[in-house]
């Protein structure tokens, strides 16, 4: 069957098998940031934005994405670069395999709630598993970003 969607801002037409999952479609399109960590919708590694909403691309049919806009980390490099350096400062990226999903969901969180509390961050990212970092460093990184941004907003000349 044919689908038409917008992928990272680019109009796309593709011929697909009806049962194709969005994750496999995206990887075939070269969006290799999208990772698979489980088969049971538990890990969050495959998170992408569909019409701006974070979803598990392992659980969306590529067919259902037809007519919608899909964004992967490949398409959101600049938005990600604003804050991921703070996570790097903590060393919390570790193996990196869960990073794209986690970064995508953090983008969604910060769009929805630009100044989240620590508890709000934990709750929003609860569906993003990480086996390396113990999570605290990821939280410190986001917090450091928010603090730095907060300072910048108060004093634009700082």
């Amino acid at each position: 069957m044919e689908i038409r969607l917008t992928l990272n801002g680019r109009q796309l037409r593709a011929e697909i098998e009806p049962a194709l999952l969005l994750i496999d479609f995206l990887r075939a399109q070269g969006c290799l940031s999208v990772k698979r960590g489980c088969e049971t919708a538990n890990c969050g590694l495959c998170t992408v934005l569909m019409d701006g909403v974070p979803v598990l691309s392992c659980s969306v049919l590529a067919a259902r994405a037809s007519g919608h806009s899909v964004q992967t980390l490949e398409g959101l490099q600049e938005e990600a670069e604003e804050f991921v350096g703070f996570i790097a400062d903590q060393g919390a990226e570790q193996c990196g395999f869960c990073n794209p999903g986690y970064v995508m969901n953090t983008i969604a969180l910060l769009r929805e709630n630009p100044n989240p509390t620590d508890d709000e961050i934990r709750a929003y990212l609860a569906g993003n598993l990480c086996r390396c970092s113990g999570y605290e460093g990821q939280l410190r990184g986001i917090r450091a970003f928010l603090n730095a941004r907060g300072t910048k907003e108060v004093n634009p000349h700082a």
């Binding site: 290799l32 940031s33 980390l73 490099q77 990600a80 991921v84 790097a88 990226e93 395999f97 990073n99």
Partner: peptide, 25 residues
């Protein structure tokens, strides 16, 4: 010193670095 991991930014930005990213499908 607490320096950044050399691969940190590439990993955080989702660059293709893992087995299924670097071997032909």
């Amino acid at each position: 010193h607490a320096l950044r991991k050399k691969d940190s930014m590439g990993l955080l930005l989702g660059k293709p670095a893992f087995l299924c990213d670097v071997t032909p499908a």
